[in-house]
Write a protein that binds this DNA or RNA. Structure first.
Lengths: 156, 156
DNA sequence: AATGACAATGCAGTATACTGACGAATAACG
DNA sequence: CGTTATTCGTCAGTATACTGCATTGTCATT
């Protein structure tokens, strides 16, 4: 016979949202651990990844590419600018826009850090067998794409 | 040939952490939408669920049951107390502990809100076929259990 | 009984995520 | 050309999540 504690765990554990929240916690913790030498967060690195491929991007485009809220992108860029990883300047073509660019140092860090970031991803999926990892990624991708419109920060 | 934007999307989309973060965003958005009438967040409802099953629980036990950081639990309880959903009192057995209990109103809301919460969970998984939903939950459960120790707020 | 280890909570500080409102610049339209 | 609408960025406010430190209470050992 199940104790009340067992009943509770079953109740929370049966909610996809609860499992998603915990996976998010776990992944962030692993990322920060693997990337401790750089003192950068997953979201900061996501923004840096975007800028490594698309330099001189305005904040809303960065938000769309990385699926981050635009006010949050502004915060993240301010912190990256403070650490001389990014610079921002008003666009001469459209003076409403602030275009962000990686500094040379920022571009170097983005490259150097990639291996540590990848270790975090690999560790995260390590408990699954190879075919399960593929299936898990496929299912997450299907859910993200089908539900894309329901977050405040949809991709693209 | 892929454009730079396509390359980027592939780069971020191939990172499990990025997909997890987006799923988390999406689920929270759906939860808040379905439960808008109650103005309660997923984490607040998780704490209420714990207290519905285990009344008079101290904050660290709540944190362990719901896998929430203990400082965060204190914040959440303070907000729930302000709204008269929860009361807190120092334990007479151990005066270090503050025991939280749902008020009658809080218990009523927990029951009433369950259907809306469940709608959010169902909508979230709706894009998957029935067997895919089962598999997805199974994989999430395996990852959460195997990686439990790596978050600051492990369960139990 | 005093001491020292440990446990529960609190507090300050930071990062992500979002809402709503606002000002400034641009674009669209008549 | 001028009015209107839209877009970009910002600001203030709130919630979650975590780190590190301090405080208080309990307990074990002496």
């Amino acid at each position: 016979m199940a104790s009340t504690i067992d009943e509770l765990k079953s109740k929370l554990g049966d909610r996809p949202g609860h499992l998603i929240r915990r996976l998010h916690q776990i992944h962030v913790a692993m990322f920060l651990e693997e990337c401790a030498a750089y003192s950068l967060t997953p979201v900061q690195y996501a923004v840096m990844t975007v800028l490594a491929i698309q330099p001189k991007l305005d904040q809303i485009s960065i938000a769309n590419e990385a699926a981050i809220d635009r006010t949050n992108v502004a915060d993240v860029l301010a912190r990256l600018e403070e650490r001389c990883i990014v610079t921002r300047q008003v666009s001469s073509a459209d003076r409403r826009m602030k275009l962000a660019v990686l500094t040379n140092e920022g571009a170097r860090i983005t490259r150097d850090m990639e291996a540590a970031m990848q270790r975090a991803q690999d560790r995260f999926l390590a408990p699954l067998a190879a075919d399960q990892r593929v299936e898990f990624m496929r299912l997450m991708d299907a859910l993200v794409n089908a539900n894309n419109a329901f977050s405040r920060a949809p991709a693209r």
